[in-house]
Design a protein around this nucleic acid. Structure first.
Lengths: 131, 131
DNA sequence: CTGCATCCGTCGGGATACTG
DNA sequence: CAGTATCCCGACGGATGCAG
């Protein structure tokens, strides 16, 4: 699994001053994908632990494929833990880790911002589109 | 507008209903794209105001096409203001709005999280990949 | 200088079918 | 139940060229 993709080099003097921008971008790319946030939030709301089918129901519209893929990525990042119970029928439970929980907090900041300002954004869009 | 705040309900259907998830997702999709965050941060670092070519230099690797497109979207969302000076050669300046600045703050939460925890994520990935 | 237009490769992600 | 395997399409985004 080797995927560099590091074709661009950011100028440390400019953007990199405040932080490591690549990490930020990778993070945003990660949680900015279509389902990650919902799964993290859902897991939290479900008590920090849920099985595959529960998550499937908790996030309407998600396909099995994307649920499986996204969970695998979250597991790889250490944000959730996958536990397989060798039963028949099989049961798999996903649990949010402390690292995952810690991400929940800054995420909440964005959620709050969205709730507080989304109306303004919508209005700005409407105004822009009408001109 | 329905907004039950952060209702802790274990009802799976309520998971995605709390805190208007679509707005959250749209926001994340927006700022989670490849360049928006960098432009917002760069604009801030450049004093809240900069011209096209400055931004192009401030964000190495961005193409003119994406710079133009991203700025247009940010303008449409009311996060930046575009000002055209009818000179020869033409000059265009972009200024971050108050709304844009307000977004900067919750974003900083993610930046801080990335700085604080990215190493852990990397290690989790390395461990996962080695298994 | 500041874009827009066009071409084009890559990739996320949906639909569907199949497996242990 | 909990996935994996394929197919497929549209969106993202880079490179280049043209325009005001």
């Amino acid at each position: 699994m080797k995927k560099p993709g590091r074709t661009i080099s950011l100028d440390p003097a400019a953007v990199c001053k405040s932080s490591d921008p690549m990490a930020v971008r990778e993070l945003l790319t990660k949680i900015g994908d279509k389902w990650s946030i919902f799964l993290i939030l859902s897991l939290d709301l479900l008590g920090g632990r849920a099985r595959f089918s529960e998550l499937e129901r908790a996030v309407p519209g998600i396909s099995q494929r994307m649920l499986s893929m996204t969970l695998k990525n979250l597991e790889r990042d250490g944000l959730v833990i996958r536990e397989l119970f060798p039963e028949v029928p099989p049961r798999v439970e996903y649990e949010i880790t402390d690292l995952g929980k810690s991400l929940l907090q800054p995420t909440q900041g964005l959620v709050d911002w969205a709730k507080a300002n989304w109306e303004r954004v919508r209005k700005a869009q409407a105004k822009y589109d009408s001109e």
